[in-house]
């Protein structure tokens, strides 16, 4: 008899993610995969492709575009969609502003982080999506650690963390009333290291900003922010050139760069393993507002 190969943690996590993706596709009428151009959503897309190959994806991808993205990420997104030959929907925060749905913030602290929740919920309603796949992981943040794989949202897009559906033995309840939807997180049990190890194992390409490069930056609140047309600087915030990379990819207004010379996936893995700062602590200004910042945003419909 042929012998089995030994399973690794990545094999188990991959199988679990694919199981969740297939369940959601089968149980939900109109799913969509939220694609940000970040490493987690790139891994998620790769897993979705594997789950249904050699057939194509049974759902489209959607990018909530704040208009404040890094150019490299948008270029990556378009090239990836063309290569996969899948459907991409772009929901634009600029459009929401133009339609008067939200007010753009102004000044050096302006961010569209909060605004994109409205754009996302409007897009879900417009396309009548019943489930959104997201690349969130439980290791990212305390309130995320509490979330189910299939996370219910009421007609207002709200999360009710005190009354979540039981999910014993990977049995998911995807039933919905009109106007409600689900957020589905196949990577729930992955860590940042798992994501990088999987990127290495599968040979996935990432936007270039994940690897060390020279960039004009300035310092704010102990973080390095990139010079970007969307970011207004205080007079004392001087630009300088630094060798950096990004550990997470979000809006240019709230995503910090880290000093790094890691130029390959392998080097990033080594650096991440040795790091004594968490992913969000190193690079996300949006979580620094309060100790429950993420929970509050999630309750209101955030990713």
């Amino acid at each position: 008899m042929t012998t089995l190969t030994e399973l690794s943690t990545l094999d188990v996590l991959e199988a679990e993610a694919v199981h969740v993706i297939r369940e959601c596709a089968a149980e939900c009428e109109r799913p969509v995969l939220l694609f940000s151009g970040g490493k987690d959503s790139i891994v998620l897309t790769h897993l979705a492709v594997k789950a249904f190959a050699p057939a194509g994806l049974p759902f489209p991808l959607m990018h909530v575009d704040t208009g404040h993205n890094f150019d490299e990420v948008v270029a990556y997104r378009d090239a990836m969609v063309a290569r996969l030959d899948e459907r991409l929907i772009v929901a634009s925060v600029e459009d929401s502003i133009a339609q008067g749905r939200v007010q753009d913030e102004t000044g050096p602290r302006a961010s569209r982080n909060r605004l994109q929740t409205t754009t996302l919920l409007d897009a879900i309603a417009e396309h009548r999506f019943t489930a959104c796949f997201g690349g969130a992981r439980r290791d990212e943040e305390r309130s995320r650690a509490k979330e189910r794989f299939f996370s219910h949202r009421d007609a207002f897009g709200q999360w009710e963390p005190r009354n979540q559906r039981a999910e014993p033995w990977s049995l998911y309840n995807a039933r919905l009333k009109p106007g409600e939807h689900l957020r589905v997180f196949p990577l729930s049990n992955w860590t940042e290291i798992d994501v990088w190890a999987y990127i290495e194992r599968e040979g996935l390409e990432l936007p270039s900003i994940y690897f060390a490069h020279e960039r004009e930056v300035f310092e704010r609140d102990g973080m390095l922010l990139a010079a970007h047309p969307a970011v207004e600087r205080y007079p004392h915030e001087q630009l300088f050139t630094e060798t950096v990379r990004f550990r997470t990819v979000g809006d240019a207004t709230c995503t910090g760069a880290i000093r790094s010379t890691a130029a390959t996936v392998r080097e990033v893995l080594v650096e991440t393993r040795a790091s004594d700062v968490s992913e969000r602590g190193a690079s996300r200004a949006d979580d620094r507002t309060s100790e429950a910042a993420m929970e509050d945003r999630k309750r209101n419909g955030y990713f």
Partner: peptide, 22 residues
């Protein structure tokens, strides 16, 4: 306070729902 991730949990000092850590 590391795993009691919900506002209500930290306020009351109890665990309401399971938190998962690796």
């Amino acid at each position: 306070l590391l795993t009691d991730g919900l506002r209500a949990e930290r306020e009351q000092g109890i665990t309401i729902d399971a938190a998962y850590r690796s």
